[in-house]
């Protein structure tokens, strides 16, 4: 399969339903808390995805929510990750540009087509400013069915009325 930015966007946003529900409460281990679930897209292909949600217990601002595509040929491809605040560089070779912002890692066609499935570049974002907002935004971005959100993530089904959107320079 050859990936394009369009096919990546489609994989991320296609409507999905939960086929393995997350535990009701977060599980704590190794100084972080976690929830996991498995999703299936609601189209004819019935593609399978997994979702991980992690948050540091010591640094609440340090978290990651990720969507992983489990391809038919057995590959795990991380498609998008909503991250909290930790030091990050859009270009690790450019020392002048590290930042400390909320940021989103998104798969690129170049990475996936070259067998780099897990680690993708990031852009700083204004789309959320807390773990709760990131969760709400993430669940909508990955196309999770509204019913599933209201059942398994109560209170996470609506976004704040006033907020800044978009990427940061």
């Amino acid at each position: 399969m050859i990936f394009t930015s369009l096919s990546i966007d489609e994989l991320i946003s296609c409507e999905k339903q939960i086929i393995e529900a997350p535990a009701r409460d977060f599980k704590e281990e190794n100084r972080h808390r976690r929830r996991d679930m498995r999703l299936q897209d609601m189209g004819a292909e019935k593609r399978i995805f997994s979702v991980f949600i992690r948050q540091s217990l010591e640094f609440a601002e340090d978290f990651s929510l990720g969507l992983v595509y489990l391809s038919q040929d057995g590959k795990r491809m991380t498609m998008i990750r909503y991250n909290g605040q930790h030091d990050q560089s859009n270009d690790p070779y450019d020392l002048a540009k590290s930042h400390f912002q909320y940021h989103i890692h998104k798969a690129t066609a170049e990475n996936l087509n070259n067998g780099r499935y897990a680690k993708h570049p990031a852009i700083a974002t204004r789309d959320y400013a807390s773990f709760g907002e990131a969760t709400t935004e993430f669940l909508q971005t990955i196309g999770l069915r509204a019913d599933d959100i209201s059942i398994h993530f109560p209170g996470m089904d609506s976004l704040p009325l006033f907020r800044n959107r978009g990427t940061l320079p």
């Binding site: 991250n83 030091d87 990050q88 560089s89 690790p92 897990a118």
Partner: peptide, 30 residues
Amino acid sequence: FHEDGDMVDIFLEEIADGRVRVSDRGLSLM
């Protein structure tokens, strides 16, 4: 940096015997 540009998490704190603890506060296993 990790492959995706995230900085490796390294924390420093002085401990009682004058040494310095270099740690990751659990973020690597997360």
